[in-house]
């Protein structure tokens, strides 16, 4: 039995297979419509989430399976003091697979150690969010046709943004990927990513402050939100929150085939006027998120569809 805790749990070959399956689901959804009939996913969300929970639930429903679970710690037995280890043992009796989001880092790993069903980490604090990374990889590969030979701009909160950290971890495994790290001084990429991942892998990267300086060379721009909940000081947040705003004028500096991705929710960092630009693919990205979660559920449940 296999779990998914980190995007690096899959080798590059396994990842290719998973993304191939997701692409086949995209092309032939009917073929998979009954693949998980009689199976259930438990979505154990100890903190609120709209997209990720609904994406998992939509994925299982698209596969013909059913869904049970809770969407906040208050409505679960955690409010009575039940441990994650006990909860997963009980849920293992009710469901065939589980997706867990928890504010404490490592909680899904603890669950996986006691579980008799596959556990998917659906986000644990500021630590990992592997299915967002799988979503990003599927979006890039589907729309660019490759995961190597790309110049990728990562823009915004590079300090606290776990999606950015996970994406860098995943992409350094592909050849000839160049990173342009675009952030204000205060939100620069942390040392443990710069030194332990980029430098150690001899990865080509440069750090810039102005988005305009990077835009012309990018194949792909990954925008992120400055997250209010990560700041201790309201004043710092207010100063940082509108540091980058991608608008129509800036998009004119970009290549005609540059893609704009965003893990969402967006606040002000992408102006709504950009939404109709064919290069803005962040809503397509959401759809890819469902396909890749369908592929993941099938893979972890070892369901083969002929």
């Amino acid at each position: 039995m296999r779990h998914l805790m980190s995007p690096l749990d899959f080798t590059v070959e396994e990842l290719d297979k998973l993304l191939d399956l997701a692409n086949d689901i995209e092309k032939n959804p009917q073929k998979y419509a009954h693949a998980c009939e009689g199976k259930k996913i438990a979505t154990l969300f100890y903190e609120p989430s709209t997209r990720t929970r609904l994406s998992f639930e939509a994925a299982m429903l698209n596969l013909g399976g059913s869904v049970l679970g809770f969407s906040s710690a208050d409505s679960s037995s955690a409010a009575k003091g039940e441990s994650v280890s006990d909860t997963i043992r009980i849920v293992s009796c009710y469901a065939d697979i589980c997706a867990m989001r928890h504010p404490k880092e490592g909680a899904p790993l603890v669950a996986s150690l006691k579980s008799s069903i596959p556990v998917i980490n659906a986000g644990d604090g500021g630590h990992q969010h592997p299915t967002q990374t799988l979503t990003d990889l599927l979006t890039i590969r589907s729309l660019k046709g490759r995961l190597g030979n790309l110049t990728i701009g990562l823009c915004g909160d590079l300090k606290f943004g776990r999606t950015v950290h996970s994406l860098i971890h995943a992409l350094v495994r592909y050849p000839n990927v160049r990173f342009v790290l675009i952030s204000p001084e205060e939100l620069r990429i942390p040392d443990y990513i710069r030194d332990d991942v980029l430098v150690r892998n001899n990865q080509s990267f440069r750090e810039v402050i102005r988005l305009e300086d990077a835009l012309p060379e990018l194949d792909l721009l990954y925008m992120t939100r400055v997250q209010k909940e990560r700041f201790f000081n309201e004043e710092d947040y207010v100063r940082m929150k509108d540091f980058y705003i991608l608008d129509k004028a800036k998009m004119e500096l970009a290549r005609p085939d540059m893609l704009v991705l965003h893990p969402l929710p967006r606040v002000n960092e992408i102006s709504v006027e950009v939404d109709d630009d064919p290069r803005a693919v962040y809503f397509k990205q959401v759809q890819y998120g469902v396909y890749v979660r369908m592929a993941l559920i099938l893979t972890l449940l070892e369901v083969e569809v002929c």
């Binding site: 441990s83 280890s85 880092e105 490592g106 644990d124």
Partner: peptide, 11 residues
């Protein structure tokens, strides 16, 4: 303080 070891008993 955000680690599950700060919450889960007996870990």
């Amino acid at each position: 303080p955000r680690c599950i070891t700060s919450l889960e008993p007996g870990l």
